[in-house]
Amino acid sequence: MKGGAIIWRVASFAVAAGFIALWQLVANWKLVSPVFLPGPDRAWASLLRGFSSGDLWSKLIGTLEHMAYGWLAASIAGIAIGAMIGSSRPMRTYVAPSLEFLRPLPVSAIIPVAIAAFGLTQGMALLVIAFGAIWPIMLATIHGFAAVEPRLYEVARSLQMSRLAVIFKIALPSASPDILAGMRLSLTVALILSVVCEILAGLDGLGHWVLLSARAFRSADLFAGVILLGVTGYVTSVAMSLAERRLLAWQASQR
């Protein structure tokens, strides 16, 4: 069985390699103008060049920083506020519906408001990223807190646990699958908003890099940037999966 999985994996990589070869052929035969579509060879060369000169490194780190700070701030605030609302019945009655109402709001629409208030600054970007990323986390936390098995609260009562102990030992772990799912969604939101803010505010990062490359019709650099953004999305989501698997090991045994 395990050997079979490896063979499938290899075959799957071969297919992906086939697509890259096809892309190379399309580029070589100039089926699409090289101004728009560089071959994978040129994109790869640009990636290497960018990293050896250090240009791309600093852009990558810029984007990662925007994303990480915004996401972390959103996670902390989202879990704290979500826990506060989710663990109190009056808050759930009075506040939660307003939040649910705001959920379908396209968060990027607050970018102009943030620009008006804070200008084209790093602070504006972090605020927008955090604001966008907080929703899935906060709503998932509220939901997770509201869905805690009532029997566990009774166990906590008969053990005379303090309110703080109940939150940390019962409610938070019980809500953790929801919270982590929310954090995973937010990771994607944070990456997208980082790119948008970099494009709009000209902040140091991959978003700005791809835009400048496009303006200058340096398609190889442009594709290098896009590939790097794809890798960023992939690596962060894999890291999140690993964290989830570790933290939720107890869930695997439940199925």
Binding site: W8, A214, V226, V231, Y234
Partner: peptide
């Protein structure tokens, strides 16, 4: 599904907005 897995997993995480400059010049 198994044959396309790597391809799909390689393209999917590209944030849609990153395609903006490509779409713009094309």
């Amino acid at each position: 599904d198994r044959l396309m897995e790597v391809t799909v997993e390689a393209v999917r995480p590209v944030p849609s907005i990153a395609l903006l400059p490509i779409a713009l010049i094309a």
